[in-house]
Amino acid sequence: MSIWLTAIILGIVEGLTEFLPVSSTGHLILATELLGYDASKWAVFNIAIQPGAILAIVVLYRHLFWDMATGFFRRDPVAIAFVRNLLLAFLPAVVLGLAFADQIEALLENATVVAWALIIGGIGILLVERFAKPEESGGVAALSTRQSVIVGLVQCIAMIPGVSRSGATIMGAMALGVDRKTAAEFSFFLALPTLTGATVLQLAKHHDAITRNDIGLITVGALVSFVVAWAVIKAFLAVVTRYGFGPFAWYRIIVGVAALAWLGTR
């Protein structure tokens, strides 16, 4: 298979899965394995194309971000609370991400860990959907500092590939009583600093291994992920508002079991 076609396929996978509670990193690792590549050699690529998906959030919520940015400098209470909550939720990932960077990177090569994380995460989503009692929260700015910090801590579980950053943050928020829409949007917005930080860290760490051809591949993958993520995000909120997260939980379990079966035959 052409290496450029591989970049396009992985870009599609990234865009489809980054903001769904199914683990984009896990799917990218499984995809590289299915395509017959060494997952460790594509690990940096898989992280480097994340800015494409991040840009989709920026474009779709550009008016909100502009209002929050200008409001923050006007000392508007809603804008200040919005920024505060994102920072509080982001800080745990900074501390633990830097402290355990090498251990996290080693896990990015383990497809078996991904498969089990998909299954366990799927069961976790079903439990939260069954027992959580979310109520209308009034948006991200209305969340308490306690809720923001706890969601940030829960997000760190997603450093294990296959857990799903969006899944962990959304379920963590819902377990605290946050409604589905606000929980999903908090996960979207929290992706901006979290994924940007992870991308910068990986590119800085592995910049010597990135060739001119790799830059072209990364650009293609990022552009594809932007287009796909933009379409997925618009549909995602409508789906979860109507059907909840149960379908994604069952999908995770099925994919995880199938991956374990396939890995067991290799």
Rank of each mutant, 00 (worst) to 15 (best):
N213T: 13
T145V: 12
I9F: 14
I47L: 10
L203Y: 02
S187M: 05
H27E: 05
V255I: 14
F245M: 07
A111W: 01
L203A: 03
V83H: 15
P77E: 12
F226H: 02
G167I: 14
N110R: 11
S137T: 10
L87C: 05
T199S: 11
T211L: 03
V44N: 04
G197F: 08
R252Q: 08
D38R: 13
S164N: 04
R146T: 15
T219V: 14
F226W: 06
A184T: 13
A229T: 15
W116G: 02
A69E: 04
A39Q: 14
I170F: 04
I160A: 06
G52A: 08
F186G: 00
D208S: 13
L28A: 01
V59S: 08
L55S: 04
V44P: 02
P51K: 09
I9S: 11
D179Y: 11
T194K: 03
W230P: 01
H206K: 05
G172F: 06
A48G: 00
W4M: 12
G122W: 07
T182M: 00
N213A: 13
F73V: 14
L176N: 11
V94P: 02
A7M: 04
F72D: 05
A231S: 12
T219E: 02
R74G: 06
I254V: 15
W42H: 05
F82Q: 12
L192V: 15
R266P: 00
E109M: 00
F131T: 05
T6L: 03
A117Y: 00
P92N: 10
F19S: 07
A39H: 08
R252K: 09
I47W: 04
I253G: 06
I47R: 06
G139K: 07
D67Q: 14
F245L: 15
V151F: 00
A141F: 06
A198P: 01
R180P: 02
K41F: 03
G52E: 04
T70H: 15
S23N: 06
M159A: 11
L190R: 13
F248A: 12
I57W: 05
D208M: 03
G97V: 11
S187K: 02
L88K: 12
V255D: 08
F236T: 12
S187L: 03
I125M: 04
G246E: 06
A222D: 05
I119N: 05
G216H: 07
A141T: 09
A258C: 12
A209R: 01
L201V: 09
A158Q: 09
G36M: 00
L108P: 04
E105S: 12
L192M: 11
D67W: 00
A222P: 01
A183K: 14
L223D: 03
L88Q: 04
F82A: 07
L203T: 13
G244A: 00
I49Q: 09
L143D: 05
L64H: 13
L30N: 06
